[in-house]
Simulated scan of single mutants.
Amino acid sequence: MNILSLKQLDEQLFLRLSGANRWPGLVTACRYLSRTGDGYWYPLVGLMAWCLFPERGTAFLIATLTAFLIERPIYWLLKNGFKRNRPAQANLGIAAVVTPSDKFSLPSGHTAAAFVMATMLSTFFAEIQWLAYGWACLVGYSRVMLRVHFPADVVCGALLGITVATAVISLV
């Protein structure tokens, strides 16, 4: 019996998922989804929440800023500690669809940030919980479809984002 390693399983799942991006419309959608996780709009969301819902919005803004101040250095230390090659450097014969902003892949920073935001939004604005987590999952999925992350990178990014956000929420 041939038992596959976690790395091999991750690579096989990556090849199955990323092979579906031969559809031009899906690639375009994934590009846009991925860009929503770049983080440029996160401050705008915080300011909108603060303006529209002064009490909840203030707490949301403070908690979210705190979470990102904790999550970003942890993400950077993990990424530069694991030094896992991105799929394009893993000799799988597949090139990335977009140019990643850094060299290593574990954890996915886009996914970690998206799950920080989704967890914060879900905590302070429970009425949009499914929308927030659905969006965060799609950001992670888009990173695999754009061939810049393995599925395990996305799962680790999601766990990082949820863990940091939950820890900050319990302290605020």
Rank of each mutant, 00 (worst) to 15 (best):
M1T: 14
L4K: 09
S5Y: 01
K7L: 06
A20D: 09
A20K: 08
W23H: 10
P24R: 14
A29V: 13
R35Q: 12
T36G: 07
G39E: 01
Y40I: 01
P43H: 01
P43R: 03
A49N: 00
W50Y: 06
F53K: 02
P54A: 00
E55L: 05
A59W: 03
A59V: 00
A63K: 01
F68R: 05
F68W: 05
L69A: 10
E71T: 07
E71R: 06
R72M: 09
I74L: 15
W76R: 11
W76V: 06
L77V: 11
L78W: 08
K79Q: 04
G81A: 05
F82D: 03
K83T: 01
P87E: 07
P87H: 02
N91S: 11
I94N: 09
T99W: 02
P100K: 03
P100N: 03
G109W: 04
A113V: 11
F115H: 15
A118Y: 14
S122I: 04
F125G: 02
G134M: 13
C137M: 15
L138D: 14
V139Y: 12
G140S: 15
G140C: 14
R143C: 12
V148S: 06
F150M: 08
D153E: 11
D153H: 05
V154M: 10
V155L: 15
C156H: 06
A165Q: 08
A167N: 05
A167T: 13
A167K: 06
S170N: 11
V172P: 00
